[in-house]
């Protein structure tokens, strides 16, 4: 790949950067900057107090914990799906491939209502799980299911291009040298996929932390147990505690930003190693 410099021969840099920065400032940076400033009317101690409340901490723990867990579940799920989609050919493959993007295209509220209908004790899947003593809807497990649903495409779509570009030679060499298929997968394929797996994990995680529409219907919304942080923001807003709502939003925002930055650094390093 040829390295481009900032003194590219191509025109339009100033114009497009101008548009991008203007639009970005207006739509993303300015409103979010306000959000960064808003909580401090409470004073530093006030902000700390409004975040350090046990109920808030529990909600943050749940939002982050469930998102991490869902992203972790999505790593093997995503790996399986991506592997099958890239490496195998089978009838209905195209259809299955289209399905993967469903959570990106389906409105989150619809997903939430539909998943609740499925996993409620009377639902198609809930009916099967209830006799086993497994409760999904209205428990933290329900939140996990919703987040796995919304996060799956992120992992699959991050892995697929990497899997496609993976040179088969390495696998062949390993096989020729007498490695079993399992050894080849563990020692050769998996390490090569590691950066993409991590990137997919981070993308699913970032998406899961803030998810609201699909979770709110299936979570039981019990304080300390199944109450997610975005719901607490809504509750604070309804109590006219704007600064408190903004404080909580700020914590979530910073976390998302950190994860995204990490994700981009990761991809950058990955790209550098590849080239």
């Amino acid at each position: 790949m040829r390295l481009r410099t900032s003194r590219s021969a191509l025109p339009g840099f100033a114009l497009t950067l101008g548009i991008t920065l203007a639009w970005l400032s207006l739509i993303v940076v300015l409103p979010l900057a306000l959000l960064v400033l808003r909580p401090w009317t409470l004073g530093v101690a006030g902000v700390w107090h409004s975040i350090a409340e046990p109920r808030v901490l529990a909600a943050l723990r749940l939002s982050f914990g469930a998102a991490v867990l869902a992203a972790a579940v999505n790593v093997p799920f995503g790996l399986l799906v991506a592997w099958v989609m890239v490496r195998y050919r089978f009838p209905g493959r195209n259809l299955a491939d289209s399905l993967i993007d469903m959570p990106l295209a389906l409105p989150t509220a619809v997903a939430g209502i539909a998943l609740t209908a499925l996993f409620a004790p009377k639902g198609w899947i809930g009916m099967l799980l209830t006799p086993l003593g497994i409760k999904v809807a209205y428990t933290p497990l329900g939140i996990l299911v919703a987040l796995v649903f919304v996060g799956l495409p992120f992992v699959v779509r991050t892995l697929e291009p990497v899997l496609m570009d993976l040179p088969l030679e390495a696998e062949e060499v390993a096989a020729t040298l007498g490695a079993t298929r399992a050894q080849t997968l563990r020692r050769v394929v998996l390490p090569a996929l590691m950066p993409a797996l991590l990137a997919g994990f981070a993308a699913a995680l970032a998406r899961g932390i803030g998810e609201y529409g699909s979770v709110i219907f299936i979570a039981g919304n019990m304080p300390m147990i199944s109450e997610i942080a975005p719901l607490l923001i809504v509750i604070r807003l309804e109590q006219l505690d704007y600064a408190g709502a903004a404080a909580l939003a700020l914590v979530m925002l910073l976390a998302s930003f950190a994860i995204l930055l990490l994700l981009n650094l990761l991809q950058w390093r990955m790209g550098r190693r590849a080239s």
Binding site: P121, Y138, G220, M222, P223, E227
Partner: peptide, 18 residues
């Protein structure tokens, strides 16, 4: 077991979701 955000949500949980 469930704290819905509104009265209608609670009625739905009780009647529709059983």
């Amino acid at each position: 077991p469930v704290l819905d955000t509104g009265a209608r949500g609670a009625t739905n949980s009780f009647v529709q979701r059983g």
